[in-house]
């Protein structure tokens, strides 16, 4: 009886910790926030025939422009082009007042790392979805979840150093420590 009781309590503690670690801990660790505008990548891709690089471009100097500035959006959406509520919000709240949209970055990397889009896209011929997944086919923007301790997005976990190393190993490309670290 005593043995069963000990096993039961041990198992209960074990199970509770597993549940807390895998379910409770992530919920506590990450704060959630919505993006200012619910952007639909697919509609831009299908209806406007836009490609990733039309908005997320690399300049001739090799500088990646990252998240597009308001001017990119305003070029087409000075006035609503359709009837969607999201577009109305975009035009009314951001384009007309001329306020830059404070997008939250899913891919911001720690301070000691830098990444060159120009090298990977132009020289390495990597497609965007190799690292960013099928974001270009999404119809809504994901909830932004920020790690309360580190301050980085949860989505960046798909771009870990191990991911970089694996890809470099598969392609036989040597970068060394200073290829990525400042």
């Amino acid at each position: 009886m005593m043995k069963h009781r000990v096993a039961l309590l041990f198992s209960l503690g074990f199970a509770c910790m597993l549940a807390a670690g895998w379910v409770g801990f992530p919920r506590t660790l990450y704060s959630s926030a919505r993006q200012p505008v619910d952007f639909n990548h697919r509609i831009h891709k299908d209806k406007a025939s836009q490609k990733c690089e039309d908005c997320h471009s690399i300049t001739s100097e090799g500088v990646f422009t990252g998240t597009p500035a308001l001017a990119n959006c305003a070029a087409c959406h000075a006035e609503p082009m359709g009837t969607s509520a999201n577009e109305k919000v975009l035009v009314a709240a951001w384009v007309k007042p001329g306020r830059e949209i404070p997008w939250r970055s899913y891919a911001r990397q720690p301070m000691n790392v830098h990444f060159s889009h120009a090298v990977h896209v132009n020289l390495g011929k990597l497609s965007c979805d190799r690292c960013h997944g099928a974001r270009g086919d999404s119809t809504t923007v994901a909830l932004y979840r920020e790690d309360r301790i580190s301050g980085y997005s949860r989505h960046a976990v798909s771009m870990t150093m191990t991911d970089c190393e694996d890809c470099h190993r598969q392609r036989g490309v040597e970068a060394g420590c200073l290829g990525c670290h400042k």
């Binding site: 041990f10 503690g13 074990f14 910790m17 670690g21 801990f25 660790l29 720690p110 790690d147």
Partner: peptide, 27 residues
Amino acid sequence: LTLGIGAAAAVPLTPIPWKLLDDTAKW
């Protein structure tokens, strides 16, 4: 105590210690 030992035994099998290590390094 038994409950606590069971919980402690499960800690390495959760992301808690590893994620905290990683996060505090970045922090």
